[in-house]
Amino acid sequence: MDTLINPFLFYGLCVLGAVGVLVALPRQKIAGFAIGVLIGAAALAAFFVVLGRQAVKDGAGLPNFHFYIFSAVALFSALRVITHPRPIYAALWFILTIVSSCGLYLVLQAEFLAFALVIVYGGAILITYMFVIMLASDGPSEDAVEAMTEYDRVSREPVIATFAGFLVLAVLASFMAGGASTLKANPRMAATDDPMAQMAPKVEKTLREAGLLAEGEKLVKRPKIEGGGPEVKQQLALDATLDETGGLQILSADGRTVRTLAEKDWPEALRLSDAQRVGFELIERNPGAIEIAGVILLMAMLGAVVLARKKVELDEQAKLEAMARARAESELGREAEFVQPATGGDN
């Protein structure tokens, strides 16, 4: 394995990127955002070019542009999220990041998640953010539309933050590149794990309907649970067995020869879509986790309600006092100029 990218070049790019971000961050005096973006973009571009040439060198044909476009857009919008002085626009840019990263997922054929993220993240979470931003920010009063709160305009110790950030990046990258090679590749989905293997009878039926199974041929089956005692073996559904290339093993009528049906020529019905696989994965592999996820969401809801409610109660009390004051003044016979109790929270 030759080195993907010359280490010096990579770290140089990291530094360049850091400087770009640094300049781009909102600052008291000169808003060097544009320049920052340029530098950052240049660094990113150089990085992608190198990666691209690497791919070309490996003879994989023209580099797949989709990935580069989507990642460029995602990273740029991420940069804008953190550099844009106004929170509203930061949220909007974030939505763009979400959309572009879903694009990346599509490149990886993980379409279910792509759309799930757009819907849930973009739709739900970011909307709550918008809502809160609207609620919590003073909102530009008429005179100083542009009067952004001071704490939005100035970022805090940018130099140290960026340095820390990119140190983390460099380290992560080194881990990823350096360490990744030592990762033991996950062996092909163990035959028994593949969803296809677990629906042996259904598979046999579809193959026969598709006319791929000759008379008397059967799928090679294997007990689901290894090493179970003899009595365990009988009553469990038998799994179809997949060989290492992912093809189904079919037993000839006379039970002697085994031929494999390559995946390519599986009938359409057998192809599982990504959503099915994810669903299968969720249900079959970690059902407990889903339950817990549900509980987490419930707790979050409860928490939000509690937090919110206390506010109301506070107001109740404030309101009572206000009314008492008002009544006292009116009894004094002075013409009480009815004061509208302060809207929203008092302090």
Partner: peptide, 24 residues
């Protein structure tokens, strides 16, 4: 708050660096 956050980030960075140099 920020002080703590920066410290944490820097900490991660340094730890990573040390692990990197040590593990290699």
């Amino acid at each position: 708050l920020h002080g703590y956050a920066v410290a944490m980030a820097a900490g991660i960075g340094v730890l990573g660096l040390v692990a990197l140099l040590a593990l290699r």
